[in-house]
Each structure stands twice: as C-alpha cells, then as structure tokens.
Amino acid sequence: MKLKILYFGMISEITDCNEELIAVPDQCKVAQLEIFLKDTYINLQGLSFNIVVDKQISTSDMLLTSANEIALLPPFSGG
C-alpha cells in the first residue's frame, strides 16, 4: 500500500520535499514506518521528531492504512 507522508521544518530539508507517497507492506505499523524512513533518509537518525497520524500524536504499535495522513514533525518553535 502507499502512504501519504508530510514533512515539516528541518525534516523537509532532509527529505528535500514537503510530501510524498511511499510504498510500504500492508499492515505496516508506525514503528516499521519509522525504521523505513530512517533507512531511506539517513539524516533522520539521531534527530528528534514525532510521527503524527491524522493530526494526532501516534503510538508505535498503531496500524497504518492508505487513508491516513501521516506527518513527521520536528521540535516545535512557535512564539
């Protein structure tokens, strides 16, 4: 299946895009997606970020579907 991933702030510089569709196996969980992304983008390793699913902070065992909107958020710096 394909997942739509949004990238923000310093993460969008590492991925060199603001969003993309990536192919993952069915039944993919947040933890697997994180490993896949860190393998694809080496510079994500050692960086602090949150994976947000449908605008909510996710847990690592959450099952993903192609209907989800997934976002990688670096540390916040508003204000």
């Binding site: 923000f8 702030g9 310093m10 947000v52 958020l73 670096p74 916040f76 710096s77 508003g78």
Partner: peptide, 14 residues
C-alpha cells in the same frame, strides 16, 4: 496560554 502554545502547536521557525 503562552506555555501551551509553545509546547503544543506545530509551528516551526527558521
């Protein structure tokens, strides 16, 4: 309010 905004809102400053 200000503390919550800084902590909870996904805003990014370059």
């Amino acid at each position: 309010l200000v503390e919550e905004i800084k902590k909870e809102v996904p805003i990014f400053g370059k």
